[in-house]
Every structure is written in C-alpha cells, then in structure tokens.
Design a protein around this nucleic acid. Structure first.
Lengths: 259, 259
DNA sequence: TCCTAACTTCGTACGTAGTACGAGGAATGG
DNA sequence: CCATTCCTCGTACTACGTACGAAGTTAGGA
C-alpha cells in the first residue's frame, strides 16, 4: 500500500496554493493565524536562539496556553520547518548581475547574510530540507545564477550546494565564537589569556610547529578584522575561480540541454 | 580579576599531559576509567546517534547508576567534547603524498570518511572546537598538507577550513537523507511518489523551470550513484583547482614566512 | 428556536531529559 | 582503630514535547 502524502506540505504552501473550497468550518474562529504564530517564533529565535523557542514560551508570548499551539501547528518540528521557510521569504532576492563571477558570489553572500541575521537557521541542519514556497523560490533563483555558464544539470545543483554550504560554514564558525563568548561570559581573547599557560603545560612534550604559528596568525587576523564578512572572501574567491575555470574548459556554451 | 583556566582541558589532555605528582588518593578507586566511559559513549552514538547518548542509558550500559557518570565527566557536554577528540584519534592519519592536489584532496577525504563512519560528529557543530590532543594532531596534519604551496599563514588556515567544511557538508547532506528515510520509514523515492501529486497541485500557478529540471536530474543522479563518495568529487575538484591556481599565481614559493 | 455536531481552547498529566543534593559505604593515612 | 576522603547512587527538581479529555463557542439543520 502506498504512503499518504505529507500533511505538513499543505501547511507550508498555505498561501501559495490555490484556494480550496472550504466546507464552511463550524466552531469558533482561531484567535490567531499560523503566520502570527510562526512570526512570533521567528522573533523569539532571533532574540534568544532556537532553544528558546519552547512551546510554552511561545504560547505565553502569544497569550495562549501551551497546548493551544497544537491547533495551529502539528508539532514543534513542523513549526521549525515553517519558520525556516517564512524566514527565507523575508529577504528579497536581488536581481542577478550579468557578470558570472558576481552572480556566483551573490548566491553565497545572500545566504551568508541570512545566516548572520538569523543564526538559528544554522541549527536547523537536522531537519529535512522541505520544499516550501520560499525555499523553492530561492532554489530557482540560485539555479538561475549558475545558469548559462555551460554547466550540466547535476553540476548546477552541486555548484549551488557548494556556494551555499560554504556560506553556511563561514557563518557558523563566526556564530560559534559569538555564542561561546556569551555563554562563557568571556571573550575569545580572555579565554586564551586564561588558558594559554595551562595549554602550554599540557602540550609539553608535543610540538605543533605549524598549528601554533598558523593558529596565532589566524587568531590575530580574525581578531583584527573589524568586518567579519572578510572571512568569506578567500574561500569564496577560490570556489568561484574553480567553478568558472571548469565551466570555461568543460562548458558546452549554454544553459540549453543538449539535443 | 582574571578568569580561571578551563578544567575540562585537563580532562582532554589526560593522557598526553605529563604525569602530575598525584598526592595519593584516598577512598575507593573508580571502577572504570574515563576512557571506558567515553568509548562506551562513542559506541552508543555510533549505533544509535548522539541523541541516544543519555546519561541514564550510558550509565546503564556501563553497569553504573546515572549519577555515577558525573564522577568521571563533569557534564554531558564535556562528555561529547571528549567523544569527539577520542573519535578523531581512532583514525590514523595517512602519510601525505607529494602531489599537492592529492594532499589537499586527502584532507577532505579523511574528514569525509570520519563523518560518514560517525555521523554524530556532524551533530556536534554547536560546541566549542576544543583543542584536544587528537584535534591538535589532526590540525597539524591538515596544515602540513597545505604547507609548501606558498600560501600565507591565514590562508593555510582558511584552506583547511574550506576543505574540511566542504567534506562535512557533503557528509551531512548524505546523512540527512539516511536519517529522514529511517525516521519516516519511507525511502526518498517513496516520499516523492507519495507527494509528487500533492506538490504539483500546491505549486499550481508557480513555475520553477530550472528547479524542476535540475531537481529531477540531481535526484536521478544521486539515486543512481551506487558509490555516494562520488558526490564529493565535483566540489572537491573545484575547490582544489581554485586553491592551486591561487597558490601558483600568488604564492611566494615556499612555506617559510617572508623576512 | 433550539439542538447538536464540529471546532477551539486549555488544565492536567505522562514520560524523558540533565543534573543538584546528600546519604551511605569503601579505602587509606595516622 | 578512627577519621578523612573519595566513590557510588537514590531521590528529586526543573523543563521539555505532547497525549488526553473536558469546557466553552459557533453554525447548520430541525
């Protein structure tokens, strides 16, 4: 027997989907809308992270009892899925420039910006990448950025994944430092000041010539970099270089599938 | 007042550190060792994922009461940090080939292999990247792989992060499908069979020309690929291309820092 | 008009987490 | 042989997601 379709898909596409002939619902109307619930959840996550998005806390913020949320959303997991798609919809997708390099870079920069603005997006890696309307819009936009370079279909998908994944990683590394600082109450520099002595003592007998030299240089560079977006530049440039070089040498000159 | 050094560092380096003159402990010996606890936790995570590593379950498996674990490990978070470092120590770091391309690729492949063998490593992204002995060994090894290409210190660090991050992302994408399949009880293909109709209905009015074409091609390709390691190849080749091209044009010919 | 089915809201409660606390027991130093 | 020090563990607290069912609200049909 075949499986039933997933009910949370309807929830995701609740706006985009064509109106169903609703059979005139009885009972009281809902006090809130799903959008209000999801928006409040996003607000909460923005302010205090995904862990703060508790059914009880969210309900309290909305003036509801905890269990009432379950009449809007089937579960916390589904709520998070809705949050992601709704959050992605908040950023308008910019027009793509003509220059291929700038197009590819833009894909990474937009995703990087989203992840910086809402670090909790990075914590959602565990859930299935549901096909919501805004996710779909974005994927289409990302593909159109890598279209026309002469890449094959699968390669286009892989290129988008490469760019977006790199942007995520960079944002994650940055966010990890921020969170560690605010959780431990000490800045990265203070931590090193407090632990350098102990670490040196513990590592006695072992030598890490490259790691210590590079680690120090990297630490100073990241510390000094006022604009953390600079950390994106090196890797992004290498990736784009690699993709463009490949497209130039292997490309078949257009987006159209071969006959 | 300055902060105190972090006590969990001593735990991480418990073997590598030089022996302390222990002031002859009184009381009964511990029945187990920290290594046994961490090994059991790794075993449990390997078998059932990180969520299954509960203080109570782990204790039960070791024949201990739940709270007894806290005499070995200060908290669950610290336990996980220990697990990561100990797991990294399980893989012997292969000798680096002479060919620069193969060196860079090896960095990614080793990390990819670890993440495939122990997907729970991918769930640990949230915790601070503690400097444990095996992490340090590995970082030194990774740096030595990118050494001698003419990259600057910061660039070496960024290159390693680029390679390792990409390997993580690829492993994560793969693992996400596996987990979704085993949690939902239906294979990726079954899911599409069950939801294609609904999705088509929901997306009526919107058109995703690229996404549908590319998505289908990508889906078929991933489905067909018997060896999932192939998914690594495209992105890895692009990254290595980009890095090597950069090193060739900007490099200053050696690992030695400039005078 | 009123009844009843359908629907929203919510209080209570269950199971499972991590872990704080303190009692009880075992081994060592004097 | 006692006191100190440490390991072990039972109990319990808080917080989580959410199952269940009662109470209240609305709209359609008689």
């Amino acid at each position: 027997m075949p499986h039933d379709p997933d009910p949370s898909l309807r929830l995701l596409w609740r706006h985009a989907a064509p109106e169903q002939p609703q059979p005139r619902r009885r009972g009281p109307k809902q006090r809130l809308s799903v959008d209000q619930v999801v928006d409040a959840a996003i607000e909460l996550a923005d302010a205090e992270g995904l862990d703060a998005v508790t059914m009880r806390r969210l309900a309290g913020r909305l003036g509801l009892a905890a269990m009432t949320l379950y009449s809007y959303v089937p579960s916390r997991n589904d709520l998070i899925v809705l949050m992601v798609d709704q959050a992605l919809g908040r950023t308008a997708l910019p027009e793509l420039p003509a220059d291929p390099r700038r197009r590819l870079e833009l894909v990474a920069r937009v995703h990087y910006g989203d992840c910086r603005a809402r670090p909790w997006l990075l914590d959602v890696a565990g859930v299935r990448p549901w096909l919501g309307p805004h996710s779909a819009d974005r994927y289409e936009w990302q593909l159109s950025a890598v279209d026309g370079l002469g890449l094959g279909d699968v390669e286009m998908d892989q290129t988008v994944a490469l760019l977006v994944g790199f942007a995520s990683n960079t944002a994650r590394a940055e966010h990890r430092v921020r969170r560690a600082e605010q959780e431990s109450g000490m800045t990265e520099l203070e931590w090193w000041d407090a632990n350098a002595g102990l670490l040196g003592e513990l590592m006695a007998g072992r030598s890490y010539p490259l790691a210590s030299r590079v680690g120090q240089a990297a630490g100073e560079a990241y510390q000094a970099a006022g604009d953390p977006a600079r950390e994106l530049e090196f890797g992004l440039a290498r990736i784009v270089d690699g993709v463009l070089a490949y497209a130039a040498s292997h490309g078949h000159g257009g987006a159209a599938p071969e006959p």
